[in-house]
Design a protein around this nucleic acid. Structure first.
Lengths: 408, 408
DNA sequence: ACTAATTTGTCAATCGGCATGACGAAATAG
DNA sequence: CTATTTCGTCATGCCGATTGACAAATTAGT
């Protein structure tokens, strides 16, 4: 039995810390650490004014974080201004790392990310996991995890937890995959395979991809956006105020069944003319005249890059349907931006024009001049893996005391 | 110049309190007060275990709140269990009240609500404000406000702030109405008319109606819902995790331009076949064979109640369109419930059946068994006014120290 | 009825942790 | 070279939560 990741370990609200003396201390440790990770190297004085504490108080907090290998002193800053220069602090390169793992339909991958957000170790393996029984897959994954753990340890890093991205539905706050249609798995508890004494969390890959966008996607990273990916169905993760919206039952983000043409073809969901009927993988492949089956999206991208007119036309149509569906989401949520992530980022050259046209047309209320921008993720298909690793890093940032205590 | 309402005065995030000693104290005062308002009369011990502090600490906090007239001691609780019975605490009836005001197209209203959530004083005035110049309207409103203030004062209550609900767009964190089409107002600062030394806030009536639903709408009140009203256009306020989603530009909640039939009639917004073309006031009146103009929705309700077949058919059609549009929102957000508020609650008997049918049909994914419920607001057209008053009450609950200091 | 057990509210003492004010150190400005 | 500014640290103080004990008020058990 292992403890769950503390704080915002990728799941739900940050742990409720009571306003007791220890709680305050822990929160202040977190504030100091987060200020420094978010806003580059900072002096103690700069941190103090930023989080509203005194320099003296910050000094003791910093001391504690340095002792825990979470911060390092870089030495005096470039002067530039009057007064004694501060001593720059930054997150250590020798502290904890977050482990992220991804179970894809055609590959397995594991990586370790430090507090800087840098990938410090990685391992991956191509393997067709469609319909394969879970046991051998998870044993291979466990092997990769151990590989990355030993690599990290020999570099002086301490793995602080493992988060796994899965192409399917995951029960909240559990290690159980409820349903992963592309893998053919259901009701599977990953705990027994991956719990090596490390805190474990399991989450949907679209969610983790969106969180990656939130944490490392841009500079500055948007805090309110709709992240569209097309891993299973057409998923749209909604991030509001820097928090992922998961929904009451954990099913939020289903864009695939947005009504696009209410009298259109029937959809397995029970509705008619859902987006999935126009922009789903199967529908697009059919419109492109390509076979449905292995490597669908990759094939689409290759053909489109080669200049195949029918494929490009199919993608334009999918983009228009996406634009219609997204206009509803944009009008409802007024996000800062819409991000095309995952495999969609590779298809974006052909999707974007029609998508943006439809979206702009339908969100052009003159009284509500929105910035209506659509951006393409830099992370691409790496998003879920990086998001998983970063979710562990965030847990450390949210409660540094927990790992500091574990180390001592 | 007056200070803005502190904390979550109806706007944005609660004020950032640094984790300094005073900040902690203020947060703890708020925690105690909120625990007691939210969960009925509680003993000090019950509060302590609920918020994670010790009984001794809670005792001093309670003393302070009692001195500030925010809490009163009810005396010993009914025993029922072993051990010494606690002394029940509840919010006082003699403390601060929140003032809410509403500027409707055909009336003005003001009320005072105490920490219990009870309306303690009210005043209203029928007046057709469509296209009337703002000055006389606001002078009348100011008179009503003064009336309610004196009534409150003579009952031993201290008004702690005034919030105004307006049928239009309001600039964030300001007193300025950007655009109120039904009134014919634009770029109007309400501050000069209503600032009597009381903290003032101004907000859109649909937002305040949704917040009312969140704060006093049910037992227990839902924390994640979509609140649909039809005051101006078709507004859908989204509440996520107990917080109103306002959007990057403050324009969130536009449901009227959800695509219902992408090839349908052109909409002034630039799109085609938007919900407003099927369920907007004008469209429904036309389908019902009624004139567009004064008292539209009221007329619809009356005729429907009388059994007018064409009106009922029109409402069924509008309900179906609403259901289609809402299915998109429900699939995207996975809310606990959809609430029909404002004028829609009166029309609900004829809207609901077709609405629920379309909504259920399109959110019936067997892998995602949602509770997909639609409820009708109990508050009806009172929502915005009560929400306004409650937003002031919430500001007090969020930072009791502010009013306690003001009183001393 | 009496005792034991349990829970509450309060008090005095303690302690954790931030604030305060002063200091030396390290830079710039003149 | 001095005055000024800012930084980091230290000793001290103080606020406020914790601790432990106690009387009070109830139930449970004999």
């Amino acid at each position: 039995m292992t403890t769950e990741l503390p704080g915002n370990g990728g799941f739900g609200d940050p742990a409720f810390l009571p306003n007791t003396q220890q709680g305050i201390r822990r929160r202040n440790l977190s504030l100091v650490l987060q200020a420094i990770t978010a806003h580059g190297p900072l002096s103690r004085a700069a941190v103090a004014s930023r989080i509203g504490l005194t320099r003296a108080a910050v000094s003791t907090l910093v001391d504690e974080l340095i002792r825990a290998d979470l911060l390092v002193e870089l030495g005096p800053e470039r002067p530039g201004t009057v007064g004694r220069p501060g001593s720059a602090l930054t997150v250590g390169e020798r502290g904890p790392v977050g482990l992220g793992a991804e179970i894809g339909v055609d590959h397995l991958a594991v990586c370790a990310v430090d507090l800087h957000g840098k990938v410090r170790a990685r391992a991956s393996l191509a393997s067709d996991n469609r319909g394969r029984p879970p046991e051998p897959v998870l044993k291979e994954l466990a092997r990769l995890v151990r590989e990355v753990i030993t690599a990290s340890r020999s570099a002086g890093l301490r793995p602080a937890g493992l988060a796994v991205a899965v192409p399917g539905l995951v029960a909240r706050d559990s290690h159980t995959v409820v349903r992963a249609p592309n893998l053919g798995w259901s009701e599977l508890d990953l705990g027994p395979y991956l719990l090596d004494g490390l805190p474990l969390s399991v989450d949907n890959e679209a969610n983790l991809g969106a969180l990656a966008e939130l944490w490392i996607g841009g500079d500055p990273a948007p805090q309110d956006f709709v992240h569209v990916s097309a891993e299973i169905g057409i998923g749209a993760a909604v991030v509001v105020g820097g928090r992922l919206l998961r929904g009451t039952h954990g099913f939020a983000g289903e864009l695939g069944h947005m009504p696009v043409r209410p009298e259109g073809p029937a959809c397995p969901c029970g509705g008619r003319g859902c987006l999935e009927q126009y922009a789903g993988e199967e529908a697009v492949l059919r419109a492109a005249g390509l076979p449905y089956g292995e490597g669908g999206i990759g094939l689409l991208a290759t053909r489109a890059e080669e200049g195949d007119a029918q494929v490009r036309r199919a993608l334009r149509g999918a983009g228009a349907a996406l634009g219609i569906a997204l206009s509803g989401a944009v009008n409802l949520l007024d996000p800062q931006t819409v991000v095309l992530g995952g495999a969609l980022s590779r298809l974006s050259p052909w999707l974007l024009p029609s998508l943006e046209r439809e979206l702009a047309r339908r969100t052009a209320d003159p009284a509500r001049p929105r910035g209506g921008t659509v951006t393409v993720s830099r992370l691409g298909s790496e998003g879920p893996l990086l998001g998983a690793a970063h979710s562990v890093v965030r847990a450390v940032l949210d409660d540094p005391a927990s790992v500091a205590g574990a180390q001592r």
